[in-house]
Amino acid sequence: MIALLKRDIRLALRSGGGAATALLFYLAVVVAMPFAVGPNQELLSTIGGATLWIGALLAGLLGLERLFQADFDDGSLDQMMMSPVPLAGQVFVKCAAHWLVTGLPLTLVVPVFGIFLGMDSITIQAAMATLLVGTPAISFIGALGAAVTVSLPRGGLLLSVLVLPLCIPILIFGVGAIRAAVTEPDPFLPPFLLVSAISLFFAVLGPLAAAFALRQGMD
């Protein structure tokens, strides 16, 4: 399984992989927002958390299409299914690879992007924390969508339609937590814990459902 993890990361980091694309896309979204919203500093810092989250969601979606595509194309998907390692475990590892290459970097650049968006240090810390626990959920939910759409033409569009609704609760809680960290009476912990809970829940459900869908798709 470690080998699978390393292989996936290497693949993604190579030029054809999605890592750089996701980061650049994220950068594009974060930079475009201030231009679109205008120089109003207060408004910008208010929607800063939301911008980071939306960017993370969209950037994650970009990489998801590729999650199983290459394996499907070159036949290694069949090999994965015949291996003694449980398929769900392998999917979990692929999700982890996806997160390490997409979600984690996005979380790490938040201090820099936060400055672009005029966020103060408390907001930046809150954003980092929520993104850290929330972006794995995107990878896990996305795995199910990717598994279902892997063999379909134009699957990427359907993938987004299936994954986005399921990610909206994470978005709501994640942004809510960021807002709560700044606004005095609102507690930060409940929404933050909810995001973590959703991630943990989908860490189990996502790979299981995705493995099932992959097997169905292969018949």
Partner: peptide
């Protein structure tokens, strides 16, 4: 999703998983 998968057995099971999630 139902409309995009031709084979009925396959589309049934894929859609079922998504419905449950």
């Amino acid at each position: 999703l139902w409309n995009s998968i031709e084979e009925p057995a396959k589309s049934a099971r894929m859609a079922a998983v998504v419905v449950l999630v």
